[in-house]
């Protein structure tokens, strides 16, 4: 159920533009202009809205998860990246987390062997996660060339690196293979590993199917069904220059690709994909372990009812005097 329904949903999302632009030509405006503008608006405003919603809740306590030696005595070496006390150290920790998935790198696998729990190395999830996110970013940036007349040198360099092996025509991009492989791994693992299948929701499968469909449609368009690239670029530039046009001769596969990306953009702010923004707001990672050095303020700290020393002494005065303890009131 939680696997099949998301799959069917993605199939429907593929068929919609496919039939739309093939059967009714006029829907090109819908899929080529209306939907992209809507999607970008939903993404931008949705993303900002979610961040603001999170930001509205204060962080009442200083609760970093410390993963290394604290700063204490001068001759004990502090682990600055795993237990930061300054802002720069926190930035360093966050960079490691966001760019190379430091915490996930710690992953290991627990197994029962010969009546003992053993912990083996398990870097595949980290590797696949890293491969997926970085190839996605690379591909995303690479697409910039569709939105400008003259392709900047930086983008050309990226393309050069990506097609380093000079295979095929058009040149084969390595990141295409990496993203397909990584997403497939993440998907297979979710179905195949009993623990992961048990915890998975439909909302975990849907984005994987969707991104897989985006990658496949892109690859089909580039390597198999030739697309009128000049027309695509014309459409893209029209969109970003707020002067949208629908050029002739763009294949239906392009509209599939574009529509799926739009769905992803619109789905993004309301899904777990918001971990992209959330990771920056995670108090266990983005705070310095300096709560003994400077007082951390809780904006909603309020007075509480305590059992005072005076009340305590009232309860025990005779016993205290008998035991020879000093008292405030004789």
């Amino acid at each position: 159920m939680k696997t099949v329904l998301p799959f069917i949903a993605v199939v429907i999302l593929v068929l919609l533009p496919l039939f739309g632009v093939t059967v009714a030509h006029q829907t090109q405006i819908f899929f080529g202009v209306v939907v992209p503008y809507t999607a970008v608006a939903v993404f931008v405003f949705g993303f900002i809205y979610r961040i603001l919603q999170w930001g509205k809740s204060p962080v009442p306590f200083c609760i970093p998860t410390t993963c290394g030696q604290q700063k204490s005595l001068p001759w004990i070496k502090q682990d600055k990246l795993e237990n930061p006390v300054t802002t720069m150290q926190v930035v360093g920790r966050m960079l490691l987390e966001v760019l190379v998935f430091r915490s996930l790198f710690r992953n290991m696998k627990t197994e029962m062997k010969e009546g003992k729990a053993v912990y083996g190395s398990e870097k595949l999830l980290w590797l696949a996660g890293l491969a997926f996110h970085w190839s996605f970013l690379f591909i995303f940036v690479r697409h910039y060339r569709f939105f400008v007349q003259d392709v900047p040198t930086a983008i050309q360099l990226m393309e050069g690196m990506d097609s380093f092996f000079q295979i095929g025509a058009p040149l084969f991009y390595m990141t295409d293979a990496v993203i397909l492989g990584a997403v497939t791994f993440l998907l297979v693992r979710r179905v195949y590993l009993p623990q992961i299948r048990y915890i998975s929701l439909a909302a975990d499968f849907f984005p994987l199917f969707l991104i897989l469909a985006i990658a496949i449609s892109g690859i089909l368009m580039r390597y198999f069904f030739k697309t009128h690239i000049v027309a695509v670029k014309q459409l893209a530039i029209g969109l970003v220059s707020l002067n949208p046009t629908i050029p002739e001769g763009i294949g239906a596969i392009f509209y599939v690709h574009l529509f799926l990306i739009c769905v992803l953009l619109m789905y993004f702010p309301f899904s777990k994909l918001m971990h992209m923004g959330g990771v920056f707001l995670s108090p266990t990672r983005n705070m310095a372990n300096d709560s003994r050095i400077v007082r951390y303020i809780n904006p909603w700290n309020y007075p509480v009812h305590v059992h005072t020393y005076e009340e305590y002494e009232d309860d025990f005065r005779e016993k205290m005097k008998k035991a020879g303890l000093p008292v405030e009131k004789e």
């Binding site: 979610r50 919603q53 999170w54 930001g55 509205k56 809740s57 204060p58 962080v59 009442p60 609760i63 915490s103 996930l104 992953n107 696998k109 627990t110 729990a117 999830l125 996660g129 590993l193 623990q195 992961i196 915890i199 998975s200 929701l201 975990d204 777990k272 918001m274 971990h275 959330g278 990771v279 707001l281 995670s282 108090p283 266990t284 909603w300």
Partner: peptide, 27 residues
């Protein structure tokens, strides 16, 4: 509305499962 940790942690888990076998009670 008072704890950002609670709010963010309700929303951003991707269920990657890295934590699954790290809890002593599960092990």
């Amino acid at each position: 509305s008072k704890y950002r940790s609670f709010k963010v942690f309700m929303d951003i888990c991707v269920r990657c499962g890295a934590c699954a076998d790290k809890c002593h009670f599960f092990i």
